[in-house]
Structures are given as structure tokens and as C-alpha cells.
Design a protein around this nucleic acid. Structure first.
Length: 219
DNA sequence: ACATTAAGTGATT
DNA sequence: AATCACTTAATGT
């Protein structure tokens, strides 16, 4: 591929993911100023405490956002899908503060980084950008509420099943390639407990267990 | 064949 | 529901 062709495909990817969201002039600016980056499965994109200078937009794939304490223990907050952004980090961006969250890719994905200073400018300049940011705020907030509800009101076995179903929907695959250890980390539980609950779900016929893999019988 | 890592299990708190 | 301590099973070298 020549340089020009690569540039061409970059534009295609951006237009495909964001084209229906923004007007032409804004798209031009996005293409001009955005930095595209490919990330591998399970790559940590952003850590707690990292300086936020860029807003990431997911062009392809999906990203998991989690909270992490000093001991390195995690808790899954929500996912970001194609065309979406992590609105929570926008605040950090504007004030140039440190990140409160950790972001990890769920699959091989393509991200677009927008420099923080464009935020303000575009907020004033483009209605579509304002609406996009506001809408993303709302989506993230709603999902966060759902997570809070799950933690507060659901038993761990229900939460686990929800986790598996959510994951299957997100990745469009009934097979989940994840170890019990990793799942327990996402749900902030312990491996032994998750293994036992998964075993119960298998007995009930909801899932099938293999090494490094869980297969949902239905969604 | 051996080491490593994932998953299963009984007992205890 | 968590933790310990141990076993068993799968996989890589």
C-alpha cells in the first residue's frame, strides 16, 4: 500500500464510524487533527492516574472501562462501543487532570485520539459535536447506573450471568474466551467463587465450560 | 517427561 | 461469599 492509499483507508474508517454523526466540515477537522491507533486484545489503553490530553473515540471494536484501587483490584464499570467515546474523561481532558479510570480493549480495535483543546472549540463551533458529547454523557451515565444497580441489588450468580450475556452481545459471540480468574477480577470477586458459580450455571444448562472458554447456550 | 497455568473441591470463617 | 490449601486437568516446551 502506498502512503496515499493508507491515508485514503484511514479516512474511510473514520467516515464509516462517524460519518452519520457529524457534518462535513467537522469530519474534515476530525480527519485532520485526529490520531488513529490500533490496539490489540487486552491492551491497556489508559491507566488510573495517566494524564488525559486526548479524547479517545472508538472507531472499530470495543473498550472496557474499569475502576482500580491502589492494590490493583478492579471493577468493571461499562463498555464503549463503535462510534462512542468515554464522556467521563472529557472533564479530565478540559482541566488536564489525571484519569480516574482504566481503559482496556476487549478485542483488536481502532481508536481515534482527539487533542483535548479541540473539545472546547468544537463545543462552540459545531452543534453535532455538542449533541454527540451530551448524548455520550447520558449513555455512559445510564450504563453506570445499571452497574450500580447490579452491584447493589443482584446476587453474584445473577450478576455473573448478566456479565456473560453482556459480553456475548458486545462481541457478537456466544463463546467467551476468558479465564475464571479474569472474570473474577472484572466483578471484583475471587476465582474460586466464580468457578463454583459457573459450575452451577453449567449444571443448570445455561453454559458450557471449557478451558479458557465459556459457551452460552442462549442469550 | 516436566513445568506451568487453569479449573475443581473440601473445609473453615 | 471469601479464603486456604490442595487436587486434577489441560497445555506449552
Amino acid at each position: 500500500m502506498t502512503r496515499l492509499e493508507i491515508e485514503e483507508s484511514t479516512i474511510q474508517i473514520i467516515k464509516k464510524a462517524l460519518g452519520y454523526l457529524f457534518e462535513e466540515a467537522l469530519l474534515e477537522e476530525i480527519i485532520h487533527v485526529g490520531q488513529m491507533r490500533e490496539v490489540q486484545l487486552d491492551e491497556v489503553i489508559l491507566n488510573v492516574g495517566d494524564a488525559m490530553q486526548m479524547i479517545p473515540i472508538v472507531l472499530r471494536g470495543s473498550v472496557k472501562v474499569s475502576r482500580e484501587n491502589d492494590a490493583g483490584e478492579e471493577l468493571l464499570l461499562y463498555y464503549i462501543e463503535e462510534g462512542d467515546t468515554c464522556a467521563m474523561s472529557l472533564q479530565c481532558c478540559v482541566r488536564n487532570a489525571a484519569s480516574e479510570i482504566k481503559a482496556t480493549s476487549m478485542e483488536n480495535s481502532i481508536l481515534l485520539f482527539i487533542p483535548a483543546e479541540m473539545m472546547e472549540t468544537w463545543m462552540h463551533k459545531y452543534k453535532s459535536w455538542r449533541e454527540y458529547i451530551l448524548q455520550n454523557y447520558h449513555i455512559r451515565f445510564t450504563e453506570l447506573m445499571e452497574t450500580v444497580d447490579a452491584i447493589a441489588f443482584m446476587r453474584l450468580d445473577e450478576r455473573l450471568l448478566k456479565y456473560l450475556v453482556d459480553q456475548a452481545k458486545l462481541l457478537g459471540n456466544l463463546e467467551i474466551n476468558r479465564t475464571h480468574q479474569k472474570i473474577s477480577e472484572d466483578l471484583h470477586s475471587s476465582r474460586v467463587v466464580i468457578s463454583r458459580l459457573l459450575k452451577q450455571l453449567e449444571v443448570k444448562g445455561k453454559i458450557k465450560l471449557l478451558r479458557n472458554k465459556i459457551i452460552l447456550t442462549s442469550i
